[in-house]
Amino acid sequence: MALLETRNLTAFYGDFQALFGVDIRVEEGETIAIIGANGAGKTTLMRSLSGVLKNVPDAITFEGQAIGDLPADAVMTRGIAMVPEGRKLFPSLSVEENLMIGSYGRQIKGAWSLDAVYKLFPVLQERRNNPGTALSGGQQQMVAIGRALMSNPRLLLCDEISLGLAPVVIKDIYAAIPRIKASGASMVIVEQDIGQALKVADRVYCMMEGRITLSGTPEALSREAIHDAYFGKVEAA
């Protein structure tokens, strides 16, 4: 049984349909990358998985149970944590408080704790008493990842994990991924940088205009296939 599975997942913003029958699957322990151009529907998919956008119950199953209609707080309690696009740290909370609130709805013992997060990202410990929003973009992303890990999630969703960050920082963040994986968490990472995505992922889904246009292991996907799935097939003249 897959850890998470979507079946014919759709999403609407008013009359505008943003997802058209998306089917994805995440196996226990897998790291999945979702790639696709701006506006492809990646964020909409992540918001659906995390319960921010509601669906019919059966559209999403997690550990065998239908969760498509659960609100975000109930989804989080079951073990799906999210690193939202744009990081969304709480400006009124210090770095440490931002981390602590990550386990608000799910306080279970596991690999992750304040100490473990500080060990993963030592710079955060030095800045623990700063307001979260006083940090650099890369450090904010570390807080957002640490905050999500604090609940010891079964599944970690990361929307645009490296967007807008300096290359050295991206290296630090990607260095954390194997350690998160080793802790037993499965991951879904949205990444526009195809090269990075192919490096860390066990499997890749490519999205275009609200649909999955390609999926497979990094080894199995050719550059042409990814190009076509990403930008659409250019009709032969």
């Binding site: 609100p71 975000a72 707080d73 989080m76 969304k88 709480f90 009124s92 609130i101």
Partner: peptide, 12 residues
């Protein structure tokens, strides 16, 4: 600060 992101922390 942000009720939607708060709900992602398990807050109602």
């Amino acid at each position: 600060d942000d009720a939607v992101t708060a709900s992602l922390m398990g807050i109602k």
